[in-house]
Design a protein around this nucleic acid. Sequence first.
DNA 1: CAGTAAGCGAGACGGTACGTCAGGTCTTGGT
DNA 2: ACCAAGACCTGACGTACCGTCTCGCTTACTG
Lengths: 204, 204, 204, 204
Amino acid sequence: MAEAEEEHRAVGRPRSELARRAVLDSAYALLEDEGIDDFSIDAVSRRSGVARTTIYRRWPSKSVLAIDSFLECFRPQLDAARGGDPEENLRALVASLAAALAGPSGRVAASVVAHAQRDAETQRLFRERFSGPLRRESAIVLGAGVASGHFRADLDVERVIDAFVGAVYFRLLVGSSLDRSWVDALCDTLLIGCRARGGHDGGL
Amino acid sequence: MAEAEEEHRAVGRPRSELARRAVLDSAYALLEDEGIDDFSIDAVSRRSGVARTTIYRRWPSKSVLAIDSFLECFRPQLDAARGGDPEENLRALVASLAAALAGPSGRVAASVVAHAQRDAETQRLFRERFSGPLRRESAIVLGAGVASGHFRADLDVERVIDAFVGAVYFRLLVGSSLDRSWVDALCDTLLIGCRARGGHDGGL
Amino acid sequence: MAEAEEEHRAVGRPRSELARRAVLDSAYALLEDEGIDDFSIDAVSRRSGVARTTIYRRWPSKSVLAIDSFLECFRPQLDAARGGDPEENLRALVASLAAALAGPSGRVAASVVAHAQRDAETQRLFRERFSGPLRRESAIVLGAGVASGHFRADLDVERVIDAFVGAVYFRLLVGSSLDRSWVDALCDTLLIGCRARGGHDGGL
Amino acid sequence: MAEAEEEHRAVGRPRSELARRAVLDSAYALLEDEGIDDFSIDAVSRRSGVARTTIYRRWPSKSVLAIDSFLECFRPQLDAARGGDPEENLRALVASLAAALAGPSGRVAASVVAHAQRDAETQRLFRERFSGPLRRESAIVLGAGVASGHFRADLDVERVIDAFVGAVYFRLLVGSSLDRSWVDALCDTLLIGCRARGGHDGGL
DNA sequence: CAGTAAGCGAGACGGTACGTCAGGTCTTGGT
DNA sequence: ACCAAGACCTGACGTACCGTCTCGCTTACTG
């Protein structure tokens, strides 16, 4: 929850949790169904049945509302199994990210980044709440491969993450496909640079 | 020019080239100065002195106008020297792309992708007119390295391009820095996976 | 017409006379039917079918719109016969004013004065366009009585007008009745002070 | 006090007299300072420091609050000396009324009548609590003149009151001046019709 | 003197209207 | 046929008040 992190407002009527949920769910559904075009505070108000003023009371702008609903409702089911083969783990991670963004939620994720262009705060929230956790998860997967000696000891984990997250997201934004074969090809290419020299044979 | 590709307008007053240029330049300047927020047909009309109706006659929507001005005015000065070391060529290419997007034009490029989320046609234009040429240029650079035997013969050139273009663009969109040291680190990481096994030693 | 008195706007699409009439008529009808409470730009827009922005383009505030519709649509049918008995002429004038204000238009006239309290410009328009002509008409009637010798030569015509216009309007505003017997009583009282001393006998 | 005349609320915390005074004083001051425009329950709440709910608990609408503050705080200092010359008494009365309304309190009095247009109850209160006492006071002054034989025996006292109260109030509402010379002229005119025929000479 | 009913402050809630802005269409007159 | 100007409708914006409501706290009469 990005809004209203202040703690104990003991005075006054408490905020309605129902209204909150209705707004976030409606906002998310709207982004999913209609995309960025028909997303407006008015539309969210109509769809959720929550008064426009109530929405404005909590969310200062539609950018913030959009990302808030995204952070609250987007659960990418990241497949980050840490056991097993480090390469398979990475493939699974990238594939699950791509699959999540290829589905209906992809429109939401794309819309959020689009909205973020008009608001530095939204950008920050996106980085901290979405991009950050995703990167941390990825770093754990890659780090395990390094620790096991499967990946090079001097692997620049952060740059590998830059590469595949950026590639997936960019293709989402420009409307290119995110199917499994593309994911595999990308992982093949990246993994070549990840493997330790000796011992392990990572032949394509 | 994305608009008005039809051929034989033999009758009537010919369209004013001045108006066209004024609109495109103003649109670009507006995107550069103010970002996506204050970009509107109205604002372009005011800034350019060209009537709103004239703009509408030529550009069907502001998304198309935005990308059209981008395509017309954004000249990234891609440093694509094809002589010299293949690795240095790639570094120079990535660095020049990052430098162009880190500057004031970056806001325009980001705004265009944001706008593209609402219009498939804009997405298509972005891919065909911006992304496509950039990839072709990059493919030539990488292909030269393959041909010279410096890069692996089975290098998946397109995926490497996905990786660095995506990484650069994604960082632009989420507001992360695009400085030279980051570019170098990214290239270091990617190049490891590009080099042919024998002969050339590209140890970091 | 209080708005848009400037002359020759030769450029651009001319303003729609239909829209103008629809707005003024709807505004008047609204004031007549609902009184001051439900009078709003929104309501006028809905009732007239004219877009809110169009209304704002022409009328700067609802006070001005109210008085404009009043001035345009309120035609009090002032019975200002100048022939015949000066006393009967005055009675007829006062009676017709009272009758007009006692009817449904009275709510409009009251609402206009109420609105005028928030805007000096509206007050000025009310004085110039409504109060002024009414007083001039009245002055002619009273002046004819003075000229004929029926009314005192030193009659302060303007104060007599103050008295009966004020009395009628004040009773409208406080909700007192304006029936014929009250009008007659008021005129009886005022006329006593108007008659010339000699000759004429205006005993009640 | 117009509100809450019911009697025995013996249980519970008694209503705060401080809150009551703060609200009425603030409401009056607000009407005096800002006029009808910025008069709102919210504004009164802010100015008085009394919670909005407390105000709503006592006053059903802002019209009622306005007139209540008016009735409570407006003390016109009516100069109703009953000794001395009947004509001077009337002049003093009218002059004091005009003086009170010409001052800052005039805005309040005007606003109250304006607000009264939306509520019959407010109109009634205005008539009963303000207009009524004023008329009774005036009737006493005029009646004394009749009793002393200075004014005509068949003088229609109520109509004379209609005339001068209406004249004064109407001029207040349309923004005309209420200075002493106008008051004198009005009284001159009205008094002509008041005087008994014989004996007394009221020549101007 | 403890309960308790009501007052009080704060502030959320669903509304309506405000006045502004942009989008996209249209109707003029002038070039 | 083009252009500039500007009207028009639509609809979203963010704000201000409206009147109602739910809280937690306070107060003073009452049993």
